Computed example of a mutant assay.
Amino acid sequence: MTLLFSVVINPLQIALALLLAVLLTQTVPLVGLWRTFILLPVAVPQIVSAIIWGVLFRPDGPFNSVLVALGLPAVPWLTSPDMALWSIVIICSWVGVGYWMTFLVAGIKDIPETLYEAAQLDGAGPWRRFTNITLPGLRRPLLFVLVADTVANFLVFAPVRQLTRGGPEGSTNLIMNTIFERAYQIGDLPAASAATTILVLIVVVVVGIQFRLLPGKD
Rank of each mutant, 00 (worst) to 15 (best):
I91Y: 11
I91A: 10
C92T: 15
S93R: 08
G96V: 05
G96A: 14
V97Y: 08
V97S: 01
V97T: 12
G98K: 12
Y99P: 08
Y99F: 15
W100M: 13
W100R: 10
M101A: 07
T102C: 09
F103E: 06
L104T: 08
V105E: 10
A106N: 06
G107M: 03
I108G: 03
I108H: 03
D110T: 01
I111V: 13
I111N: 00
P112K: 05
E113R: 14
E113L: 11
E113W: 01
Y116S: 06
E117W: 09
E117I: 06
A118G: 00
A118M: 05
A119Y: 01
L121W: 04
A124W: 02
A124I: 00
A124G: 11
G125R: 11
W127S: 08
R128N: 07
R128C: 02
R128S: 12
R129Q: 14
T131G: 05
I133V: 15
L135Q: 01
L135C: 05
P136A: 03
P136M: 00
G137D: 06
G137E: 06
L138F: 11
L138T: 07
L138I: 11
R140I: 13
P141K: 02
L143Q: 06
L143Y: 03
F144N: 01
F144A: 08
V145H: 09
V145D: 09
V147S: 13
D149Q: 14
T150I: 11
V151Q: 01
N153P: 08
F154E: 10
L155H: 09
L155P: 01
V156T: 06
F157Y: 06
F157P: 00
P159W: 10
V160L: 11
V160N: 04
R161C: 03
L163F: 05
L163I: 01
